[in-house]
Computed example of a mutant assay.
Amino acid sequence: MPANPKYLTQSVWQRIAKITAAILGGYFVTITFHLALATWFNRANVLMTMAFSGFIVWVALMVIAFLAKSAWKIWAIYLLLSLVFCLFIYLGQTYNPTAQ
């Protein structure tokens, strides 16, 4: 049974933006989140955990990207989260160099 057209995204640009936000944006948020954890906690443990939890978080972020009304808003949220996690990575490497 096909989907009801009124629930589908009509704009091609919105569709492309949602797909790229789901794949790339979700990946960037997942990786920066786990790297931020690795700079503050035991790196080996976090990276081993990332092998499993990273995939789960990435898939969850993909689903959220497709549920969002506006693709540009989800892109903005994902970029903001990635930048915040990058700040945590920088602060972790600056103030906690022993977690290497």
Rank of each mutant, 00 (worst) to 15 (best):
A51Y: 00
A65Y: 05
P2S: 12
L24W: 15
V29Y: 05
V59Y: 06
N45Y: 13
K6R: 10
M62Y: 07
T49K: 08
F33A: 00
N96E: 08
T94H: 08
I74S: 02
M48A: 11
T32K: 09
G54Y: 11
T20H: 06
L91H: 05
I89E: 01
F52R: 04
T49N: 07
N42V: 00
F41Y: 13
A22Y: 08
I56G: 00
A38T: 03
W40E: 09
W58M: 10
Y7G: 00
I74L: 06
C86K: 00
W13H: 08
L8R: 12
P5D: 10
S70V: 01
A76W: 01
A51L: 14
I89M: 04
K6C: 01
I31F: 14
Q100L: 13
A44R: 02
A65R: 05
A99Q: 04
S11C: 05
L37H: 00
L83T: 11
A68K: 04
L87F: 08
T49Q: 11
A60H: 09
V84C: 01
L61E: 06
L87Q: 03
Y78I: 08
A65V: 08
V59R: 05
S70C: 03
P5T: 11
L35D: 09
L91M: 10
A3C: 06
V46Y: 00
K73E: 15
I77M: 07
H34L: 12
P97S: 10
L83R: 02
